[in-house]
Simulated assay, not measured.
Amino acid sequence: MSDDRVTVTCDDCGLAETFDALGVARAFVEEHRTETGHDPTWELPSLASGVERAGDEAGVCGRPGCTDTGSPLYQGE
């Protein structure tokens, strides 16, 4: 995989796709979930540590265990 591509995989059906843009990959993941009920995963290119931390604090991943609700970046549920 190139460092600037997003890979989406689904263990339920063996799907494996790569995308040049995060937005397109995210839309594909949501469409696959809606159409199949599967829960695909994605591998993102590496981000600067500050970007990853800010995303975690803002709650962008959507998982309660990785969100800092005390951060000023937290966007709520």
Rank of each mutant, 00 (worst) to 15 (best):
T69M: 11
T18H: 14
G55Y: 01
E52F: 07
V8L: 15
G14T: 09
T18P: 06
V8M: 10
G59P: 04
H32S: 09
C10Q: 01
T36K: 06
T69D: 04
G23E: 09
A54K: 06
E30V: 11
T7G: 02
R33Y: 05
G76V: 04
T69F: 01
C10W: 00
S71I: 11
E30K: 12
R33Q: 13
G76H: 01
G23H: 05
A25Y: 01
E17K: 14
V60T: 15
T41Y: 03
W42C: 10
E31F: 08
D3G: 13
E17W: 08
R5E: 09
D3S: 09
D20E: 10
C13R: 10
H32P: 07
A16R: 15
S46L: 06
S49Q: 08
T34F: 15
A25V: 07
E77A: 13
Y74F: 14
V24I: 11
V51E: 09
D56K: 13
G14I: 11
S49Y: 02
D12M: 02
Y74C: 09
S46N: 05
D3I: 08
L47K: 11
A54M: 12
R63M: 12
T7Q: 09
F19R: 02
T36A: 09
R5G: 05
L47N: 04
L73Q: 08
G37Q: 11
D39L: 11
E43H: 14
C10D: 08
A16S: 15
M1N: 10
G55K: 03
C66V: 09
F19P: 02
V6F: 07
E30H: 02
D11Y: 04
G76N: 03
M1F: 13
P64T: 13
V60E: 02
C13A: 13
G50M: 04
D56N: 07
G23F: 01
R33S: 12
G65P: 00
P45R: 00
G37K: 13
S2V: 08
V51Q: 12
E35P: 07
E43L: 14
R33D: 05
L47D: 03
D39Q: 11
R5C: 08
T9S: 15
A27Q: 15
D4I: 10
G55T: 02
S2C: 05
L15K: 06
